[in-house]
Design a protein around this nucleic acid. Structure first.
Lengths: 334, 334
DNA sequence: TTATACATTATAAGCGCTTAAATATTCACT
DNA sequence: AGTGAATATTTAAGCGCTTATAATGTATAA
């Protein structure tokens, strides 16, 4: 593989000149520029980003940790990040943690050894865990995309989950529902907790009592939400509406409800959360809380880049505002 | 940031000794090993994979190009690859092409500059395009996960799309359908072409004629498939069953059919293709052709790793076999 | 003519690692 | 004591770049 030296030799100039024409870092005469370019062409020279990074102490690469990139919500955020990477000439090292804390640690270690310029963390395993790895390494610019407490100072960009939960529930109430249930996420996850807190607040404000028979806890996945709903179904009287705390779970619930002979939204109204791409194509199309995943990804990237470029010391905290998307899974009782 | 030199100085040994204890590349006395480890601990030393890679000429990093990681099918494959990367101590640089050939070129260029050890290509933009980039660089171990012709020799791992299309159609026929339509993918994509060819073969063998009014072409996405179905609907008499050439399109079709007052599977049977995670949770749950996406990813990784480790010159071609998954979107007429 | 300034290119060190080759140490055996 | 083999550690080169500094050439002024 041709190196800068080979190019220099062929063009009969010094390596420094080659470097400068390649990077346009200072004036080189027309004539020599041409010679260099010809040599590059001839030798199929491709600069080694490795060597360059070693010298420059940056890699133009970010590392991103995600619980599972298979989840449409994460997938959409990742895509927003990746798009921005492309636009700015960065690369993305993507790692899944799959709920495994050891894997999180291991991956962070690898990423830091590879000297990524920054880290994007959207992994649940992070929360309330003591990431000693961060103490062992030089501090790397990091932005966390989660609602949780991280235990170390960092930029943060998050969805206003509390407000989202509130909006969702309020919509059900405004639609005339009074018997309202909730299938929430794992309460040890801050996001789940906040969405549920929003639910509570809306119920409280409307002077509606929460029937705990109608509250089930699941894990943000289709499968378990279906099970959770069946459990709720067994208990006897059903609510007329359920706030299901993310769209994937809503999908599971709709499926389970159908198989139990319930018709959505006639027998039961469902509102979801996230507005993933497929929400619109569910049957019935899902009324849900929209959060701009693409923006989330984009903002996270931009915040990270800004931190690096401006060497900002302070920590930013950005909050995205959720909005309601009305579709066909909630029945108007009024 | 501490370097190997710093460690060596603190431990009062040479850098080479430090390197050897870190990599266990040869015997070092107990006593010195301890000293080195203590220094590593003390200085929070983290080896630079950059410097190491420069010297060793490998990066333990693969690059992967995907049309769009947001598509559940791709997402699941990527996850299979990523899992394997983790298990084998590799990292994954993930790039989306989003249908943009320039972006494909640019990304390949970056990946090669970063000296990835291998390339996994699952991007449609690849097909029938002249990737001059590959000529400009040293050959990099590559595996292509697509049915198309690549124009350059490479390992290939693909789904038997022809057979899958055949199985799907045959299932509809066996279920008693004779009026069968098809919503296929873009016919310039080999995968789409082969699935459709399988459809044709099954129809031909059953002596059923193909009504071209019932054949629409779409782009493997929800949105357009819904449109395509509406177009088909307008034409008058409907088929009793449709082979929709992937699950995302099937979702769009089911949604469109519902909004047109059609009940699935009573008025219209649908069979999909891919068996993405959510297929089971559609309403009705989707009968489809399963292909092991996780395996596809795994095999692709393993093939690539094998090529690197054994320096294999010949090109492998692996084919995965599709299978039928019976669920509730096809009505039995017999 | 010589000194000075300016424009252009070359030299060489160093980024942080690995490893072949050189060196130092230990030990067994004449 | 002297030799050689075996063992343990160090020295130093080099991976492919960037860039501070030095060197060279050329035009202008004194």
């Amino acid at each position: 593989m041709a190196t800068i030296k080979d190019v220099a030799k062929h063009a009969q100039v010094s390596t420094s000149t080659v470097s400068h024409v390649l990077n346009k870092t200072r004036y080189v005469s027309e004539e020599i520029t041409e010679k260099v370019k010809a040599a590059v062409e001839l030798l199929n020279y491709t600069p080694s980003a490795l060597a360059r990074s070693l010298k420059l102490k940056n890699t133009r690469t970010f590392g991103m940790l995600v619980t599972t990139s298979i989840n449409p919500f994460f997938a959409e955020v990742v895509k927003g990040v990746e798009r921005r990477c492309y636009e700015q000439g960065y690369n993305l090292l993507l790692c899944n943690t799959e709920g495994d804390f050891e894997r999180l640690r291991f991956n962070i270690d690898m990423l830091l050894q590879k000297r990524v310029d920054g880290l994007l963390l959207m992994s649940d395993e992070l929360v309330n865990q003591n990431i000693d790895i961060f103490e062992r390494h030089e501090p790397v610019p990091t932005v966390v995309m989660d609602n949780g407490d991280t235990g170390f100072p960092t930029d943060k960009i998050q969805d206003n989950a509390y407000k989202g939960g509130y909006i969702a529930t309020q919509y059900l109430i405004e639609s005339g529902h009074t018997k309202i249930g909730c299938i929430r996420g794992p309460i040890d996850k801050p996001t789940a907790k906040k969405r549920y807190a929003g639910f509570e607040k809306a119920m409280y404000e409307a002077k509606l009592s929460i029937n705990l028979d109608w509250v089930e806890t699941s894990n943000f996945e289709c499968e378990d939400a279906a099970t959770a709903f069946k459990k709720l179904f067994q208990k006897g009287e059903l609510p007329t509406a359920i706030f299901v705390c993310n769209d994937m779970m809503a999908m599971g619930v709709i499926n389970a409800a159908n198989s139990l002979g319930l018709s959505i939204p006639d027998d039961l109204s469902i509102i979801g959360y996230d507005d993933i791409k497929i929400a619109r194509y569910m049957t019935p199309s899902l009324t849900t809380i929209h959060q701009s995943k693409f923006n989330l990804g984009r903002q996270a990237f931009d915040t990270l880049l800004d931190k690096i470029q401006t060497k900002r010391e302070s920590d930013l905290e950005i909050q995205l505002e959720p909005t309601l998307v009305e579709r066909n899974s909630v029945k108007k009782l009024l």
